[in-house]
Design a protein around this nucleic acid. Structure first.
Lengths: 231, 231
DNA sequence: TGGGGGCAGTGACCAAAGTCACTACCCGGT
DNA sequence: ACCGGGTAGTGACTTTGGTCACTGCCCCCA
C-alpha cells in the first residue's frame, strides 16, 4: 500500500522535489483516511493535529456563521495540501473542512511534518510558496466580497466553468453545475435564493439558458461585459 | 547608522532569533527608506522587488477597486514585515501599500532575502509563521465581510479602540479616532457616508457620544451585545 | 480676512441583499 | 404507488448598502 501513498506524494507540489529515499521515509509517516461526501474532516477551532493531502475527491474549506451561513474559502482537489499553516504556528484550525465528494486523503502528523521540514529546507520554501498562493486566493475573495455584487460573482463562476468544462456547440457553450445552488451560494458568500434569482435573471436577459443544473451560455462576450459593468 | 538598522531588525519577530554576527550580515544588506504620509510604497501588480520592514510609522496594505473604493487588508506598525510572500513565489504584489503616517522602513532585496533564508532554515520557519498569522487575519476579514453588517464591523472597531486606547471615566470610556471617516470606511470595506450615519445612529441609540473624532462609549456592555445581535 | 481644501453630517433616493413562506419537482426506497 | 428528503423557483417584503447632492465646519495660508 505504501506504493500507492508514494504516487500521491509525488503528485503533490509540496513534495515533488524529493528523492526516492526521502519519499519513502515520508510515506512511512503518512496514514490514509477516507471520508464520505459531506463528512467533516475537522471543525473550525479544533486543535491542529497535522497536515492533509488530497489523494482523490474534493475537500471544501469553509467558515460557518452564527446564523448558519457558510462561506467557502477554498476547494482543494487531488494533489493539493491544506492545513499546512496551523501545523507551524501551533494554533487551531481557522476554518472547517468537509468532503465535497467522497475523498481519500493522506494525513501527516504535526510533529512528523515539522521535523521533516527542518531536515529539508527546500520543502519549507515550498510550503511558503503554497501558503503564498493560498494568500493570493484569499485576497481575491476579499476583493470580490468587497467590490462586486452577487450577480457579478455568479457570472465569474459561470465563465470559469465555461472555460474549464464547457462544451461549445452552435447554440452556445454547454456546461453543468457540479453542485447544488446551496453549495454554490456558499462559494459566492450569499444564499440559495439569490443564486436562483440571478440565474433566472441572466436567462431573462438572454445571456444564458438554464435547465436544472445544465446551462447553455448564449452570449459569452455579453456576459464578460456584464461582469465589469459598474451599473 | 547600521546600529540603528540592527535595532529595527532585532525588534522584528522574523529575525529575533539571529545571532549578533548574522544580524550584522543582514543589516549590511538592508537599506533605509522614508515615506511621507499618503505616499505610495508600491502599487498593486507591481513586480516584487523585495521585503519591507517597518521601523516607524504605519503602513497600509490595501486593494483599490475600479470604482475607486479601497479595501484595507492590513495595517502594519513598527516591527512588522510585509510583502514577504511575493518574494518567494516570484509573483507581483497582490495589493498596494501606502504610508498611513510618515514612516521609516527597511528594504531587503528579493535575492538577498532568499539567500538568507536558504542559509538560515529557522528564518524560513519564522516566515511561515508570520505568513500564517497574516492568513488568519485575511480569513477574519472574509468572515466579517461575508457575515456581518457595516454596523457590526464599526462596533467591533470602536470596541477594539476602547480596549486599546480607551481612557475610562465616570461617563464612559473616552477614545479618539486616529483617522478620517474615509480611511475608517476603507478598513470596514464600505464608504464614508455609512460610517458617519452608523456613528450617528449609535449615538441616537444611546450607546455612545460623538464629538468629531472623539467618542465616549456610554454603554460598553450594550455595544458588545449589539455586535452579535442577529436582528 | 477671505478664500480654498479637506472633512464630516444628512436628506432623498435607488439598488442589492437577504428573509420568509410557500409551491413544485425529482428521485429513491419501502 | 406513495411518501419523504433534498432541491429549486418565486412572490412579497424588509433591511442594508451605496449614490448623489448639498451644507457647514474648521483651519491654513496667501
Amino acid at each position: 500500500m505504501t506504493g500507492d501513498v508514494e504516487t500521491v506524494l509525488r503528485r503533490t507540489p509540496l513534495f515533488a522535489s524529493l528523492t526516492e529515499a526521502e519519499m519513502r521515509a515520508l510515506a512511512a509517516r503518512a496514514s490514509k483516511r477516507h471520508f464520505q461526501r459531506g463528512e467533516l474532516l475537522f471543525g473550525e477551532g479544533d486543535p491542529c493535529t497535522g497536515l492533509f493531502l488530497v489523494a482523490s475527491g474534493k475537500i471544501r474549506i469553509f467558515k460557518l456563521s452564527a446564523a448558519g451561513r457558510e462561506q467557502v474559502l477554498a476547494v482543494e482537489g487531488p494533489g493539493s495540501s491544506f492545513a499546512e499553516l496551523p501545523v507551524f504556528d501551533g494554533g487551531n484550525y481557522p476554518a472547517a473542512a468537509s468532503a465535497l465528494e467522497d475523498a481519500n486523503v493522506l494525513f501527516i502528523s504535526r510533529k512528523d511534518f515539522q521535523n521533516f521540514c527542518r531536515e529539508h529546507p527546500d520543502v519549507a520554501l515550498k510550503v511558503i510558496a503554497v501558503v503564498g498562493s493560498r494568500l493570493r486566493r484569499l485576497i481575491g475573495i476579499i476583493e470580490e466580497l468587497s467590490f462586486t455584487t452577487v450577480r457579478q460573482r455568479l457570472i465569474a463562476v459561470v465563465l470559469r466553468l465555461a472555460e474549464a468544462g464547457g462544451r461549445p456547440s452552435k447554440e452556445g457553450v454547454h456546461l453543468e453545475l457540479t453542485m447544488s445552488h446551496q453549495d454554490l451560494a456558499a462559494e459566492l458568500g450569499t444564499v440559495r435564493e439569490l443564486v436562483s434569482r440571478n440565474l433566472s435573471r441572466l436567462q431573462a436577459e438572454g445571456f444564458l439558458e438554464v435547465d436544472g443544473r445544465k446551462i447553455v451560455v448564449k452570449d459569452l462576450a455579453g456576459l464578460k461585459n456584464e461582469q465589469n459593468a459598474s451599473e
